[in-house]
Write a protein that binds this DNA or RNA. Structure first.
Lengths: 310, 310
DNA sequence: GATAACCATGCAGAATAGATGCATGATCGA
DNA sequence: TCGATCATGCATCTATTCTGCATGGTTATC
C-alpha cells in the first residue's frame, strides 16, 4: 500500500546500485532508474546524486529512507490488525530461507499452508540470510527462516524487522569412519583441535559460526579445505580429508565412511535459527500460523534426528 | 506516497457513495468502483458490502480507514520534515477556501507564492468549509482557509487535520441608509432585535454563526429573507428589506443605501477563520510560509478595512 | 402498485503509465 | 589504454487504468 517507488528507494538504500536494486526487486535497471527519477519529481526532492559511475543518496534521501521505517512498520501493523480483526485471508504469501531450512522447514510449511489455505498462493525462495532481509525489504517475501547472525548490515534489533527464535540447532562434528574417535558417540572440540578442518570460505554466513565455536574453547583450528554445500563437506570428510561441523538439521542420509558425533564439553556450539518478518507484520494471522507450524516441525525434526543418527 | 486506492477508500468512507467519491477525487464512478474492488483483491480483505442500492463499509473496512489516519499523518510528517531538512521545493500546491476567503486571502497568497516560487504550480479551489475538508482528505488540496465550525462531520480536533487560527473576523451589521440608526457608528444586537433579518438558509455554514450571535444575547430574531451570497445580502438590505450581519472581511464596495455598523454591547459576534491542513503536514516549509503570508495579509486587510469603513 | 430516480457495475474501447532492451556516455581499475 | 561497470536515454511494446455507456437492482414518489 506504500508506493512501489518508495519501496524501490528503500531497496536502493540497501544495496547502493541501480543494477542490484533491479535484480532484487525484479525490475529492469531502466525501470528502477525511471522510478527513482519519477519519485524525486513527485516529491520535489533531490534524493540521489551522481557519485563516480554510480549514485549516492543525498542527505534528504537518507532522511527519507530512515523516516520511512516507522511508516512501513505502521502499515504492516495496520494490515496485520485488519486481517486479524476481519478474519480475512490473503492471496499471496512469500517465504524465504537458506538451503537446509528451505528443505527441512519451509517445504513442510508451504505444504501445510497449501492444504489449510487452498486459495493461498505460496511461494518459496531459497536465499542466504542477508538476501532474505533484502527480499523482505523489497516485499518479495513476507517471512524468512534464517540463521541468526550479527552481520554488519542487519542487527538483531533492526527497526525494519522483527525476529522470533525457532530453535537452537546444535552443531555436530563429522569425522571419517576410520578415525580413532569414530566408535565414540560424543567428542569435545578440544579433542579435535589438531585435526585438519573443513569449513566454508571466510566471510560466509557459517564461517563465523565456525570460528565462534572454537574461540569459545580457546583453540585455533587448522583449516585444511573449504566447501560451500553441506554435501561437499560430507564428501570431503568421507574422503578422509579432515573433519567438519554439521548442523543437526542437515541430514547425513547415510553417507559412506562418515560418522556424526555429538559435541560435549565446555563449548556446545549451536546455530540459532530464527524467523524474521517486516516489523509490524508479525501479528498477522498468517504469519502467526506459520510460526506455529514452523515451531512444531522444527521440534519434531530435531528430536527425530536425535534418535535416528546418534 | 500512500497508494491512491487507499486514499479513494478514505474518501469513500467520508461520503458513502461511489458517485460522490468520484466527484471528489476527480475519477469516474467506474474507476472508483474498479479501484475499490482492486484494493480488496490486493489486500485480501472484504472492505465493502452491498447495502440497498449503495455500498457500506464492513467492520474491516472501517477498521482499516480508522487505522489509516495515523499512517497518513506519519507520512505527512515525514514529507514535511524531509522538505524542511533538505530545503527542497515542491512542484504543486493546492489551496482551498470559501468565497470571501478565496478573494481576500487566497488570491494574494497565491500571487505571493507565484512570485517567490516561480516553479511552483499553485492551484486555488473555491469550496465550502465542509468540502474543503473532503478535498484535503482526497489530496486535491494541501491547505484550506475556512470558517471554524463545529460541524457534525468534522470536529476541531479531528485526528486527520491540524488547524491554526488566522484571525477572528468580527461581524458587522448592515442596515439601510434610511434606517433610524444609520447615522450611528455602532449598534447593539438588542437594539436591532425586532428588525426583519436577512440570513442564510438553515443548515448552511453561516446560519449557525447567526443564531449563535443572537442566542448569546438571548433574543430571537425574526428571519425575513434568505440569501446565499453576501452580494445578495447587501442588495436586500439596500432595498430596505431588512438588516443583516456582514463579516468585516466581506467588502461593501460602496453599495447604495447600505450602512455598515460596528456591533457593540454584550455580544460581539465574530467568525473565526482558520487554516487547516492534513495532520503532520503543517510543519512543511511551504505551509509554514503560507501561514505566515496569510497571517500578514489577514491583519493588514482587517486593520485597513477598520479605518476605511467605519 | 407503477414509474421515475438513484446507485453500483460490467464491458468495449481508448489513453496513459510503466517496463523492456539496446545503445550511449561516463567513470574506475588494471 | 583497454575493458569492465554503471546509469540513462530512447523507441517500442505491454499492461494497467480510466472513460462512457448500458444494465440490473433498489428505493422513493405519485
Amino acid at each position: 500500500m506504500i508506493d512501489a517507488r518508495l519501496i524501490t528507494l528503500r531497496v536502493f538504500a540497501r544495496c547502493g546500485t541501480i543494477g542490484a536494486t533491479a535484480e532484487l526487486t525484479g525490475y529492469s535497471p531502466s525501470a528502477v532508474s525511471a522510478q527513482l527519477r519519477e519519485l524525486q519529481r513527485v516529491l520535489g526532492m533531490q534524493l540521489l546524486t551522481k557519485d563516480g559511475r554510480g549514485l549516492r543518496l543525498t542527505a534528504t534521501g537518507r532522511f527519507l529512507v530512515a523516516g520511512s521505517d516507522p511508516l512501513m512498520t505502521q502499515w504492516e501493523s495496520l494490515r496485520a490488525a485488519a486481517m486479524e480483526a476481519g478474519d480475512q485471508v490473503q492471496s499471496h504469501f512469500g517465504l524465504g530461507g537458506f538451503s537446509s531450512a528451505a528443505a527441512q522447514l519451509l517445504a513442510p510449511l508451504a505444504a501445510t499452508l497449501r492444504s489449510t489455505h487452498p486459495l493461498l498462493q505460496v511461494q518459496v525462495l531459497e536465499a542466504d540470510p542477508a538476501r532474505c532481509f533484502d527480499l523482505l525489504i523489497a516485499e518479495r517475501i513476507d517471512l524468512a527462516v534464517i540463521v541468526a547472525m550479527q552481520s554488519d548490515t542487519y542487527g538483531e534489533d533492526d527497526p525494519r524487522f522483527e525476529q522470533r527464535v525457532l530453535l537452537d540447532d546444535p552443531l555436530d562434528v563429522i569425522i571419517p569412519g576410520d578415525h580413532p574417535l569414530a566408535s565414540r558417540e560424543t567428542a569435545t572440540l578440544e579433542e579435535l583441535a589438531s585435526e585438519p578442518w573443513i569449513t566454508e570460505a571466510a566471510g560466509s554466513t557459517y564461517h563465523s559460526l565456525f570460528t565462534a565455536a572454537f574461540t569459545a574453547v580457546g583453540v585455533t583450528p587448522r583449516i585444511a579445505h573449504e566447501a560451500v554445500e553441506w554435501e561437499t563437506h560430507i564428501a570431503f570428510v568421507g574422503a578422509g580429508l579432515g573433519v567438519g561441523l554439521l548442523p543437526r538439521l542437515a541430514p547425513l542420509h547415510g553417507a559412506e565412511n562418515v560418522v556424526r558425533l555429538r559435541i560435549t564439553g565446555q563449548s556446545k556450539p549451536t546455530r540459532r535459527i530464527v524467523a524474521a518478518a517486516r516489523r509490524g507484520s508479525i501479528t498477522s494471522p498468517l504469519i502467526q500460523e506459520s510460526l506455529g507450524i514452523l515451531q512444531v516441525n522444527a521440534n519434531r525434526i530435531l528430536t527425530a534426528r536425535l534418535g535416528e543418527d546418534l
